[in-house]
Amino acid sequence: MSWFTQTIFSTSVGRKVIMALTGLFLCTFLAVHLAGNFQLLHNDGGKAFNLYTVFMTSNPLIKTISYVNFAFILGHVVWGAYITYKNRQARPTGYAYNDPGKTSSFSSRWMGVLGTMILIFLIIHLKDFKMAYLGITHKLDLVTYTLDNGDQVEVKNMYDEVIEEFHEPVVVGIYVLSMIALGFHLYHGFQSAFQTLGLRHPKYTPVIKSAGFIFWGLIPLGFAIIPLIIFFCRN
């Protein structure tokens, strides 16, 4: 094994670096993804959202980033599962009486379960939307828009698909629950990643912990509020 593979597979700190770097990358991805989702709330019959969807799925740079993103999700899941498995092995017999609630946060103790909830959500989410967009599960309707420069374009009506999905109570319920899990995952995960990377300092750590609210609070809230607005206020 080279020093690099030895580090990321066979040392605890090395494994954690993979978790931290992929985790932080996924955090930036969440921010970009949410900015895109807000296009759904334009009252324009879906034009902004549908054009944005085309941009996101055709621009070569964005496409490359999206492949990297899938690879990172996979890496995060595989390393997360490996770490969780190793940590179980490190304590084959548990305590008959344990009281961990006073010394560590709920989030920090349930990262694996919260992550698995997010993974299940991601699978459902990709099936519902990505596979529909790609025409695998069913064919989307087409719409024609006139661009600012006068050109006409014909694009898939992803907007209608989303609106339809977000009128299903079960879909909205799963979506909102998953965002709660994401919030808890990032309540521990975001600041934990900086600690893992050794970025701890009396001046900056309080700033990181406060900024974490954007990731564990505002971003999951933003994701959750869109289906709720569509479910209750759009038809």
């Binding site: 605890s12 700190v13 494994r15 954690k16 770490i83 190793k86 940590n87 092995q89 490190a90 304590r91 961990p100 010394t103 560590s104 946060s105 920090s108 103790r109 990262m111 521990h188 934990s192 600690q195 893992t196």
Partner: peptide, 8 residues
């Protein structure tokens, strides 16, 4: 095991 920064 591997540290997950629970701080316990």
């Amino acid at each position: 095991g591997n540290c997950t920064n629970t701080e316990a």
